[in-house]
Amino acid sequence: MMDAVSISLAARIIIDVLMAIGFIFALAGVVGLLRMPDAFCRMQSSTNVATLGMLGAMIAALIYSICIGAAGMAIKLGCLCVFFIITNPISSHAIAKAAYKFGIRPKDKMVCDDYGEDQEND
């Protein structure tokens, strides 16, 4: 929207702070994804991007679209947030299980390995 709508200063401050928090978390996740030593650590950093790095910016956009009075956009953004919250644990669980089955182990010695013990007992 160009500058046809005007929103209050408090709403602008809240939106900017939420977007800045989300961007800082996403930046931390990306730096961890680039610099962590093995695949499981990188998975943990990727989760950092997918939870608060996404949710901060999405909630900021939700508040902005409520302030400019676009109800359709707000409903779509809410659906997107709920979809991400539901599907991120599923996909990261699938990737972690695939990494274990693929033969990737943590770089240092593992302290406990319950899944492997279960596989051996069966």
Partner: peptide, 23 residues
């Protein structure tokens, strides 16, 4: 596995960027 994790992350970041541009 690293590539799968990274592509998931690219997808999330692109979705957020598109949503902000849409708003």
């Amino acid at each position: 596995v690293d590539r799968a994790v990274a592509s998931d992350c690219v997808d999330t970041l692109t979705t957020v960027s598109l949503a902000l541009f849409a708003v």
